[in-house]
Every structure is written in structure tokens, then in C-alpha cells.
Design a protein around this nucleic acid. Structure first.
Lengths: 122, 122
DNA sequence: CGGTGGTTTCGACATGCGTCGAGGTTGACA
DNA sequence: TGTCAACCTCGACGCATGTCGAAACCACCG
């Protein structure tokens, strides 16, 4: 039991931040970064992530997420777990409800990684 | 047969660009965007993408990509196809060699999508 | 014209992943 | 304490995906 139950990686552990247009991504961190991109690589997870990231008050209840989709609550829970283990969101139980909150650290790193020079518009 | 064979999407067709922290991603475009993220959601593809994006001269030969990995050339070709169909890279054959080039448009959109406010550091 | 090297496609296989139903856990409330 | 609602875990089911070898394709060069 050398690892906590749910939180797999902390966003701050990713030792890579330079835009990939400038610097090649080292093989050692490509796995961790790819896990985050893969977590966003599903239409439902991407919508979940955007609902969490744009939530008023910085957090949103699972009970507000589930009815936005036609899939079962079980599957929503599974997708949220993927986002959680990728380090993109954080969950907290309060009373009977579970609230999800974005983790801006990793999002910023991914955004920086994809950054490109200003278009050399003629 | 309403879709062309190989080129799935053109980056400019993605009608979404506002940061997901501000605006929820519409369900209609989540599939296209998720396809791009999914393409980056593999360690090898992420390294391939970074090698292409950071290539000197703006392009790189497949013959320079393949020896950087231990997997077969067949598999490298497959991964490049995924990046191509996601709209992240472009390929051009010149003489006997094929050169890959990044497509900054979609990369910029993905980066903008993940953009977050400056950290409210105390 | 045939051969050679670079690249992609094809067909096959094992693994991974999205989905669900059933059941478990947690907390609220009477 | 019993019940109920919200959420998660477990186990299972197909489909998608990463991987490879063989073969096809393309461009150059004897």
C-alpha cells in the first residue's frame, strides 16, 4: 500500500513543459503526458472535462454531470475515474454528493506543450 | 460514401476554439476534438508528433523517425496515419522519401482549448 | 527492364477500452 | 435502526487499437 487509492499522479510531477514545437518530448515523460491526452481522447470525457472546467464556483456535482448524457451513471463514473487518474480533475465528497474540480496545473502544461508560434500571417 | 477516404478532417473545420474553462464544448464537435486528443494519447505518437513539430526546416523524413523507436516500421507508419487522419500532421512524398510536417492550426486550437487563467498566486 | 530500398497497406492476433447490470459503500433522515 | 439516494466497484461483454510479418506500391538506379 505504497500508493494512495485514487490519485495516481500529481500534475506537478510532470517534468516537461516546453512547447513540443521547440523541444522534443523525452521518452521518459511521454507515457505520463500521453495518459493525460488519452483521457481527453473520448468525446464524453472531453465534455465532462469541459463541464468541470467551466463550472461556476469552480466545481460541479456528479448529479449535475450524469443527466447531461444518455449513458449510464456507471459509465460516467468510470470516465470520471479516468480523468481523476490522469491528474486532470479532483474529487471531494461532501454530504451525499461528490464534487469534481479541475486541476489547472496539468491543463496548463498540456496547453503549453501544444503551443505554437504566432502564425506568420503575411 | 459521404466521406473522403483518408483525410478525415481539415483542421480549419473545427468550429470550437474558446478555452474549455470558459465555455462548455458542444457535443457536436467533441468527437472531432477527442479524435485529435486521442491521437496524442499514445507515448509513441506523442514522441512522433514532437519530433515532427520540432523538426528543423519544418519537416522530417520517415527514415529519420523510424530508427528512433524499437517498434517495426510498419507500426510507425500506422501511428503516422493516425496523426494524419486526426489532422495534426501532413505528409508529402518527394523522390523515394516521405516527409511529415506539422499542421499548426489544429495544434493551436487544442492549446487554446486547454488554456487556463494565470494562476491566482497569492 | 529488373532489382533495390523506402513506405504503406493488408490480414491476423492479443490486449485495451467503453459500456452495462448487479451489488457494495457512504451519508442523510426519520 | 431501517430506509433511501448518490456514487463507486466488480465482473462481463463486444468492439477498437497496437503490434507484427507478408505483400504491394513507388521511385530511383543499374
Amino acid at each position: 500500500m505504497s500508493k494512495p487509492p485514487t490519485v495516481a499522479i500529481s500534475a506537478e510531477d510532470v517534468p516537461c513543459c516546453a512547447p513540443m514545437a521547440y523541444e522534443r518530448i523525452p521518452a521518459e515523460v511521454s507515457g505520463t503526458l500521453a495518459q493525460a491526452f488519452k483521457a481527453l481522447g473520448d468525446p464524453i470525457r472531453l465534455q465532462l472535462m469541459s463541464m468541470i472546467a467551466s463550472a461556476e464556483g469552480g466545481e460541479i456535482c456528479v448529479c449535475d454531470l450524469t443527466p447531461a448524457f444518455t449513458i449510464s451513471g456507471t459509465t460516467v463514473s468510470h470516465h470520471l475515474k479516468v480523468l481523476r487518474e490522469a491528474g486532470l480533475v479532483d474529487a471531494e465528497r461532501r454530504a451525499s454528493w461528490v464534487y469534481y474540480r479541475p486541476r489547472p496545473g496539468l491543463m496548463r502544461q498540456l496547453s503549453a506543450l501544444l503551443a505554437v508560434d504566432e502564425p506568420a500571417r503575411a
